[in-house]
């Protein structure tokens, strides 16, 4: 009974410490939200079931390997995994979703569907948070160049003057920062699209 009222972060911690029942509570708690999110993208109940299953297999593997580090943000994290798997599904099947009017689907439903906008917002926030975390993993001199170039829109001349290095060095730091970010994106299987 206590488990049912526990917060996601507590359940995640319990599960990572070996309590399997906590996972069941998490799955049941978020089943409808995650399944409906997937279904709103693929419009097929069997594919939804498959993607839901693959999503939680990834969740289980990540948690059991101790790789989860997004305290208090379990649902956005799971939705982002589901979102990435939906994209994989469309890449594999080589076709993009179509919006059609019909008995199963109405274009007006998408336009008025605040829940879907909320999901997109969650994903967007999650992506921004991921990028921020990845930038913080970079060596300090690369972080500085990224911050100045991407967020303060400074030229490489200004960056070079401001950090006391040559333009070539600033360019080199930017290049290595981007290489490192790409590597992190690949390693973490992050899809930066919404």
């Amino acid at each position: 009974m206590e488990l049912l009222q526990a917060e996601d972060s507590t359940l995640v911690r319990n599960y990572m410490n070996g309590d399997e029942a906590s996972l069941e509570v998490l799955i049941n708690r978020h089943n409808q939200r995650i399944s409906s999110f997937i279904y709103s993208k693929v419009f097929d109940k069997e594919i939804t079931e498959d993607i839901f299953q693959d999503t939680f297999i990834k969740v289980i593997r990540t948690l059991k390997r101790g790789k989860y580090n997004e305290e208090g943000k379990f649902l956005p994290w799971v939705i982002r995994i589901a979102h990435n798997l939906v994209i994989d599904h469309y890449r594999k099947s080589n076709r993009m979703p179509r919006y059609e009017s019909g008995p199963d689907y109405s274009i007006f439903a998408i336009l008025q569907d605040d829940n879907l906008n909320a999901e997109k917002q969650l994903i967007q926030e999650q992506i921004q948070s991921d990028i921020g975390s990845m930038i913080r993993e970079l060596p300090e001199e690369q972080q500085v160049v990224i911050q100045m170039r991407m967020f303060r829109d400074m030229s490489f001349k200004e960056i070079a003057d401001s950090t006391g290095v040559s333009i070539n060095t600033a360019l080199g730091r930017m290049r290595y920062a981007l290489i490192n970010l790409r590597k992190m994106i690949e390693e973490n299987q992050i899809v930066l699209t919404n």
Partner: peptide, 18 residues
């Protein structure tokens, strides 16, 4: 307007077994 969908109990059982 939104169709609510949930994974089936057998899927959840599979995940718990996994």
């Amino acid at each position: 307007q939104q169709e609510l969908v949930s994974a089936k109990p057998e899927t959840i059982r599979f995940l718990m077994d996994f």
